[in-house]
């Protein structure tokens, strides 16, 4: 009786387990592939945003730097920020160069106090990326925060 019932069955228990295992492995590998692709995409977008923000901060440091005099005439002093140039920094023009929808800069001085020209544009829904840089402001250490989106 038993053996005849087994012989009529379409699937054996072994075959159904093998089938289930195959389906499970397929789903697991697909999920792993999708998640690794999403991780790679988010990592590359984060790297791109960070590089863009760093490029923007370098541009700000260059454009707001103190001009060298004497033998350094025509040069700018790296990472030395001029207050006048910083406060009058042309953010809309920098945004145009960077193809950005929003940009802001802020300088925090180690002895206290902050310089921040008004931000320009409106933040993108994709998010705003900020980086910090160190600079010299009137002989003191200062932190520049440059944000872009």
């Amino acid at each position: 009786m038993e053996s005849s019932r087994h012989s009529r069955a379409f699937f054996s228990i072994d075959a159904s387990f093998a089938f289930l295992t195959a389906v499970f492995i397929f789903v697991a590998f697909s999920a792993a592939l999708i998640s690794s692709a999403l991780t790679a995409q988010s990592q590359s977008s984060e790297i791109a945003s960070e590089n863009r923000a760093l490029r923007f901060s370098s541009y700000v440091l260059e454009r707001t730097a103190v001009s060298g005099g004497g033998q350094f005439d025509g040069h700018y002093m790296a990472n030395e920020i001029d207050a006048g140039k910083f406060l009058s920094f042309d953010l809309p023009s920098a945004m145009g160069r960077m193809n950005a929808s929003f940009a802001s800069i802020k300088l925090a001085i180690s002895s206290g106090g902050e310089l921040a020209p008004p931000a320009s544009g409106s933040p993108s829904p994709k998010g705003t990326y900020c980086v910090e840089r160190l600079a010299v402001f009137e002989g003191q250490a200062a932190r520049l925060e440059a944000c872009i989106s």
């Binding site: 960070e50 760093l54 901060s57 002093m77 990472n79 910090e132 600079a135 010299v136």
Partner: peptide, 17 residues
């Protein structure tokens, strides 16, 4: 990358101050 930039900035700031 930001950490590398901050570190090289720190070297410049230490030298300039």
């Amino acid at each position: 990358a930001e950490a590398f930039y901050l570190c090289s900035d720190a070297a410049i700031v230490l030298a300039r101050t």
